[in-house]
Structure formats: C-alpha cells, structure tokens
C-alpha cells in the first residue's frame, strides 16, 4: 500500500516535470494577480501593507483553485482514473497521493515565492515569516478541499465556473484565519490561535477529504 502511494506520487511528479507549464502557470498567475493591486489601488506603502496579507492570500486561493483542473482532468480523459478506481488498493490512499503530488507541484512553489511578494507589498519580516507558515498550513487545505470539488465536476464539459462556485465558499475559513494571522503579526500580536486553527483544520481535511473525494469520483465516473 505504501508502495502504491509513493509510486503514484512519483508518477505524477514525473508527469508534471515533463509538462513544465503545469508548475509554472499557477505561479505566474499568483505573481501577476498580486502585482495588479498596487497598480489598481495605490502604490503607497501604508495602504499596501494594510491590504497586502489579504491580497496575497486571495491570489494564492485563486491560483490554487485554477490549478485544480490538472489534478484529475488528464487522468480522466485518458482513462487512467478508471483504472485507479479498479485498483485493489483503497482509493482514498491513491487519491491522497495525487493530492500530495498536486500540492507539491502547485502549492509549494507559491510558498517559495511568497517572501518576494511580501517584500513587494511592504510586509515586515515577521509578517513574511507568518505568511510562509500560513501558506504552508493553508495551501494543503485548499488542495484537499479543492479535490472534492474537482472530483464532482471532472466529468462535466464546462466545470470551471461551477468548480469555483462549489469550492470558494469552503475556502473562506482558511482565508479568514490566514490573512488575519499575517495582519496580526504585522501589528505584533500573538498568532498562535490562528495557527492552531489552521493546523487542526488541516488534519481534519487530511483525514476526511480523500474519502469524500473518492466517493465523488466514483459518482463522476459512472
């Protein structure tokens, strides 16, 4: 079972490295969206530092959501998803491998690049540190919840808009606690409460989301 998990993870990573755009596009999207805000609102330091945490998090949220399509779409179209459903191993384990791979491909680069954007938005060093921690805890949650939504719409031709309608309301707690944690650390307040919440939510999603996703996939592939 562990072998099945790691081999599938390896396969997905290998596929992603053969399609570099899958890694780079969400990252570019993330960077571009964040740079739009100073242009649209104001380049002033105070304004940007105030809205920066929220903007970076909203951009991360959208980037993560838009990258969900690559999670199951190609496997669905060439039939490998069908074969995965017919595997003798528990489907949630396989799904979890795919989600982890997807997070490593799309979520992790965002975390690496976030200090750069934090600097551009005039966040303090502590705030940037908090931003990275919240992204580390929060983006896996986005991938896990997003997987449920993607599994529900994978067989639909125009699933993109529908996916955002299904998934974005469920992303709200992550957005609230993460951007608030970054803002609080800017103001020098304690952020342990927010981080505990994010960690608890992550563990919660880690246990339940793969099960819900595999149930949804079985329905979608019918």
């Amino acid at each position: 079972m562990y072998n099945a998990f790691f081999n599938l993870l390896k396969r997905d990573l290998r596929l992603a490295f053969r399609h570099k755009s899958e890694i780079l596009n969400p990252l570019f999207f993330f960077v571009i969206v964040v740079t739009l805000f100073p242009l649209g609102i104001s380049p002033e330091k105070q304004v940007l530092a105030e809205i920066g945490p929220g903007i970076i998090w909203v951009a991360a949220l959208l980037a993560s959501m838009l990258s969900l399509d690559s999670l199951f779409r190609s496997d669905f179209e060439d039939g490998t998803l069908e074969l995965m459903l017919l595997s003798e191993y528990p489907l949630p384990i396989l799904i979890l491998a795919k989600i982890v791979a997807h997070w490593l491909i799309t979520g992790f680069p965002i975390i690496i690049f976030s200090p750069l954007l934090g600097t551009v938005m005039f966040l303090s060093n502590e705030a940037i540190e908090t931003l990275m921690i919240t992204l580390l805890l929060g983006t896996p949650i986005l991938s896990l919840i997003g997987a449920i939504g993607m599994a529900l719409v994978v067989a639909l031709k125009r699933g993109g808009m529908l996916l955002s309608l299904l998934v974005l309301p469920l992303y709200i707690p992550v957005l609230i606690f993460s951007s608030n944690a970054v803002g609080s650390s800017m103001a020098g307040l304690s952020i342990s409460g927010q981080l505990y919440f994010l960690a608890a939510f992550l563990i919660f999603c880690l246990t339940l989301a793969p099960i819900a996703t595999s149930a949804a996939l079985r329905v979608s592939l019918e």
Binding site: I148, L170, A216, S220
Partner: peptide
C-alpha cells in the same frame, strides 16, 4: 441518479463545513 448522488456528497461536505465557516466568520 448521478446528479442526486453527487449532490448528496456536496451537501454532506457542506454541512460539515458550515459550523467551521460560521465559527470563523463570527471570530472575524
């Protein structure tokens, strides 16, 4: 029939999330 089952999964996921969303919004 597939629509009904997909919606059932969505509703269950939603109902688990409602208290979390509610709590986070209240806190915010």
């Amino acid at each position: 029939r597939a629509a009904a089952r997909a919606c059932a999964i969505l509703a269950i996921v939603g109902v688990i999330n409602i208290p979390i969303i509610h709590y986070s919004v209240e806190w915010w």
